[in-house]
Design a protein around this nucleic acid. Sequence first.
RNA 1: GGCGACAUCGCCAAGUGGUAAGGCUAGGGUCUGCAAAAUCCUCAUCCCCGGUUCAAAUCCGGGUGUCGCCUCCA
Length: 463
Amino acid sequence: MKIYNTMNNHKEEFNPISNDKINMYVCGPTVYNYFHIGNARPFLFFDVVRRYFEYCGKKVTYVQNITDIDDKIIDQAIKEKSSFQEISERYTKAFYEDLQALNIRKADHNPRATEFINEMIELIRDLINNGYAYESNGDVYFKVEAFEGYGKLSGKNLEDLKAGARIETNNQKSNPADFTLWKKAKEGEPKWDSPWGAGRPGWHTECVVMSRKLLGGTFDIHGGGVDLIFPHHENEIAQAEAINGIRLANYWMHNGFLNINGDKMSKSLNNFFTTRDILKKYDADVIRFFFLSKHYRSPIDFNEDIIIESKTALNRFYEALGHIQILSLSDTKKDYDATLSGFIDGFKQAMEDDFNTAKAISILFDITREIWSDQNDTQKKQQAGLLLVELGQVLGFFSDLEKKLSSNVDQYAELLIQLFIEHRIQAKKDKNYSLADKIRQDLNAIGIELQDTASGTSWKVKK
RNA sequence: GGCGACAUCGCCAAGUGGUAAGGCUAGGGUCUGCAAAAUCCUCAUCCCCGGUUCAAAUCCGGGUGUCGCCUCCA
């Protein structure tokens, strides 16, 4: 298994700390709104990472934090004339709902920042006592020059940071690059008591405390979006390694950004799409296909055309699974021959190469071809179908096959449709094609599509 | 200004030294009374210039273009 490690900027052999157990931590949402389609990318991708490890027989402990106290939440609370608790409560709930709708499994632990305030205060106190942080007028800052390795993840050094620093309005800091550990509460803001007065912790501290508590010392994988490399992950490393004296994480994985119609998502362009809204129009598998058909580190563009393309492509899988009536095969024993086993190897090879999901998906299309191939007997086709589902589910597809492949109409409607079909067959026998076409068109108008095949006329509900 | 990434068929996208996966679209075939759906077949020498090598989309140098990060945006 090779993983691209941001720490060294190249692919490395992945050596987990424990052979059969993998610990991973992925930065979760700040719950001040519904998450947008860009946020969905890391959630979905790391879900696949986890599924793949589990497919390989590893035990995964997956931690994803929820930032439930933060400036943005406070702003939103003011805007909605609500409390920060109400806001974070509401959008935490929405977060879980949207994850489920995307068939993203919940993490093993979803620690919330407000549950760890005491631990954060302790950490900040320890940092001060060890000379890594200082208090300044009710705020506490991390002293970046005190930590030797500062900048090692993002490839920055303090000189560059100083040169590139924006105009610093905060003169409480002794160095503009120092970052906030504790923020003094302004009038009316949420606050917790601390040795430095009432306030709230800075964002970078929570992940340090939570990962230490839930994963112990050094863990295997830390993930998130590229934008988190600096400053967030850099600052996590500084705090954790200054105090613990050991590495925070061995592998740092970062997914690329998502653009909308070629533009960066931004408020001014008003091109934010919430995942929730997109799910109203497109199936979770379509969104998943869109993401996974590109490498996770590449920047990708989200637009309507590409989603429709994903939908069309994905449909090939469903057509094939419907063709062999996969639902009736639930009790069928898996018995893959050399060809099919070869696909498993190819799939694994792709995934082991820094999670090349695009390549892995191409294997799914190869398997699909086996389902249709005239060279294969029924049994082989069925086995191919079982394999398609098995590997597809490693990528998180096919979560609700029953619902997607069944017609979902009641028995009387079904009988009526059959009745129309029989009348149409009679009309065709009588060479009354105008009537036959009318029946077909009318059924089509109410969403029932007829298809004349060699074995008779079949129908399905249009999607 | 500093650091870094990327540039492959009309579109999306794999590919890190041995002679270009896959998907969408398109064209052609099969099936059909006609359709639709489905399926099968066909379709690129890899931004430009130079270099290394028996051999480069893949390595090196230069150019052009696009993009990201540089204090809280996944």
